[in-house]
Design a protein around this nucleic acid. Structure first.
Lengths: 335, 335
DNA sequence: GAGCGGTTTGGGAGCGCTCCCAAATATTGT
DNA sequence: ACAATATTTGGGAGCGCTCCCAAACCGCTC
């Protein structure tokens, strides 16, 4: 049967305040008293009642990770498991529980918001993968709920951690330019998302810095899925690009399929560069040149920042951009 | 600013008990009072404090889904997303929050157990994918924590919902027998798991019911991964089976790879039958004959049963076995 | 031994809600 | 109009903990 702090106090022959001081590592308890209390705690297997603590402290030690996607999408995009691992590891290390939420239905979203956040079930929320017009951010701002976005957000009040999408995409395209390519296409991410826009911006900057004018026929929007990119690549092939920058590895795999289905060779006929450095990048044939983004570290850092906001060690909005890195493999070819 | 029940009471000109009766849909409130209270609740956006309710009711409205796997395995096996969807949908419909937990490290498991369950953070737990020697079940039994296993468990005290693995496997192998096969191999699931054992038992029953003796050289244990099954199939090929029953679709994909890599044809040289009817079954070439298990429904039913235990509408252990169904596609061939 | 300062300890109060039971009010029957 | 019964309402108490402040204790100095 679950025991209470009062029972531990009785068994240890001290007051409830002393037991509370012991389990919360407060000073001002004699060592032999502290030891005696711990022994009772272990003997009866006492564990503090989460709700009772939460009622007083206004903390639950539970963080939410909200990904406004349908479940199937969540599990089929390898980006999210890696992000979630970064988040989960920090939660474990910092003794927070993680509640993972996913949905694609706006009605469901409002319901979750009201119940989970307004009932003070969560100390704070990490938001990832949301389109720019998602209503959750204005709600969170209005309610003063601690939250962090894994990804950039164009509002100074928002705390976020992102990777250098613009710089990474620029690096990738500059590499293709150094290899001599001039007719470089791109399959973008969804332009409703910051990452989609940023990676397109990097592509633009690289071309314009070499005085190469943009060609709309070489730019096709993708949806971050493999199949979507296969279709997008099919639309690019008649334009005869010699290279393509694809805004995620998952989509690059789809583009590579379309290229092969057209009887063309990678990289001899079309050089391919992706973005992410997911595990699949080194498994495909030929191995994919890509921009490495530290997904797991982004998840970990978002979590640390959120805990900082929750515990008051961080005040005011923070913006962190993590560096990206070009990983050259065989898919882009060489000089 | 978050409002309290007392504030709603003051604004509505009633007592706190009346407000509590209104939000909990108790009778014995005059309709015009009930209406007035609801209007105040909406105006101030009141949401009950989860911890305060929980402290009194001993309920949190939070269920745990525990899958003792590493994160990467969890996300790469298509079984779990479908199960999770079944669980999540019922949680949403029944207004429970779902906390998803995953781990592969025993130390981490004990830590989670102690903190989440013993602190009364969760109303109950659904357990899935655990090996038979996992220590979590004895802990849960000892503590009288409500829990349900998605999968069969050999202990009468345990409430579980499973699919008819024995019957399904038997169906699959009987189908191969009807097609004239006599040299039928099998790649089992892990025999540390009930599902692994049951699907092997179904294979055995089908063969023995036709007076065909078991041949150990035609039985290889797999680990429910595609790569593991590819290696297992390589070990079976020298035995020249004319057919193979593979204990999951994911493994069947691996087996098919090994068959093709050996220059053999499916189903002409070796007929293949899987188990699951995952989405991939109808996408591979040739489309996979398989046993359909209602994964999502299993998740949904496990959740309903757990809620029944939590809310007291179910007392004592329950055991439900959901029917399986043979789905004939091209991989098994025909008469 | 007395006084002072620092440390340790204990018990009341309150966090926001639900439940219980007595009081107040309304309804029905004679 | 009055009595009996049913319905509605309100306020105290407690769920298990943390915090606060006063009391008790200890050690040191004169």
């Amino acid at each position: 049967m679950a025991s209470t702090l009062e029972e531990v106090a009785r068994l240890a022959g001290v007051s409830r305040s002393t037991v509370s001081r012991v389990i919360n590592n407060h000073p001002n308890v004699r060592p032999e008293v502290r030891k005696r209390v711990w022994e009772v705690i272990q003997r009866v297997g006492y564990q503090p009642h989460a709700a009772a603590r939460s009622l007083v402290t206004n903390r639950t030690q539970v963080l939410g990770l909200v990904i406004p996607r349908g479940l199937v999408t969540l599990f089929s995009d390898p980006f999210f498991p890696i992000l979630i691992r970064g988040v989960a590891d920090v939660c474990t290390a910092r003794r927070y529980h993680l509640m993972l939420s996913f949905f694609s239905d706006p009605l469901q979203q409002e319901e979750l918001y009201r119940r989970a956040l307004r009932s003070r079930l969560l100390d704070g929320v990490i938001l990832s993968g949301a389109p720019l017009d998602d209503p959750l951010v204005p709600w969170l701002l209005q309610d003063n709920t601690p939250f962090v976005i894994a990804g950039r957000y164009p509002d100074e009040r928002v705390t976020y951690v992102d990777v250098d999408n613009i710089g990474g995409a620029r690096m990738a395209v500059e590499h293709l330019l150094r290899l001599g390519h001039r007719r470089i296409a791109t399959i973008t991410g969804p332009l409703t998302m910051m990452a989609g826009q940023d990676r397109l911006e990097g592509y633009r900057q690289a071309l314009l810095s070499r005085g190469i004018p943009l060609n709309d026929a070489l730019i096709v929007e993708g949806d971050f899925t493999e199949e979507g990119a296969r279709v997008a690549m099919q639309r690019l092939l008649p334009q005869r690009p010699t290279a393509v920058f694809v805004a995620s590895d998952t989509m690059a795999v789809g583009a590579m399929k379309a290229i092969r289905e057209a009887g063309l060779h990678i990289p001899d006929d079309i050089a391919v560069v992706g973005f992410d450095d997911l595990p699949i990048a080194s498994v495909v044939e030929p191995p994919l040149t890509t921009v490495r983004q530290p997904i797991e570290r982004m998840g970990a850092m978002a979590t640390e920042m959120l805990i900082g906001l929750v515990e008051g060690t961080i005040t005011g909005p923070q913006h962190i951009i993590l560096p990206t890195q070009l990983i050259v493999r065989a898919s882009c070819g060489s000089l």
